[in-house]
């Protein structure tokens, strides 16, 4: 980069730019019981945590699910899952699948609605050119 007086703007980069290899981890579980586990999701916050909690709560096999932000300066969440017997990791996978499928449907619905709106309400030349 050029040599001048360089003023670099505030830049407290998350690990976003070079994602760490592991984004998900599991807390050691002393009892060896696979139905209760805490997962650590790196680089995530309420955005995914709460959505995931909702979809997992919708699963009848889940007896408890909750998440917490460990500390404001730590960029990760702890997600606790307890089930009525099924391994927690399988339930978590199902949760991700359900959430993904749900978003996929939301996306197609949203895109078809906007397409419909643009076809019916928008004069491409008048409305969109107000900038």
């Amino acid at each position: 980069m050029a040599h001048g007086i360089t003023a670099t703007l505030a830049n407290y980069r998350t690990s976003l730019q070079s994602p760490s290899t592991a984004n998900i981890g599991q807390e050691a579980n002393s009892s060896g019981d696979e139905s209760c586990q805490t997962f650590i999701l790196n680089d995530e916050d309420h955005t995914l945590g709460n959505a995931l909690k909702y979809i997992l709560n919708k699963n009848p096999e889940v007896t408890f699910v909750g998440y917490s932000l460990t500390h404001p300066s730590e960029n990760k969440i702890n997600l606790r899952i307890q089930t009525s017997g099924k391994p927690a990791i399988d339930v978590l996978k199902q949760g991700f699948k359900d959430l993904k499928q749900m978003c996929s449907h939301m996306l197609t619905t949203f895109e078809s609605s906007t397409r419909y709106y643009k076809e019916n309400h928008m004069d491409v030349n008048s409305d969109m050119d107000q900038s």
């Binding site: 984004n23 998900i24 999701l41 991700f96 699948k97 993904k100």
Partner: peptide, 18 residues
């Protein structure tokens, strides 16, 4: 649309990793 894709992407990323 992008926001919805990003939420999908997050799920996909973790599914892949699991």
């Amino acid at each position: 649309s992008e926001a919805m894709k990003i939420l999908m992407g997050k799920c996909q990323k973790f599914l892949q990793e699991l």
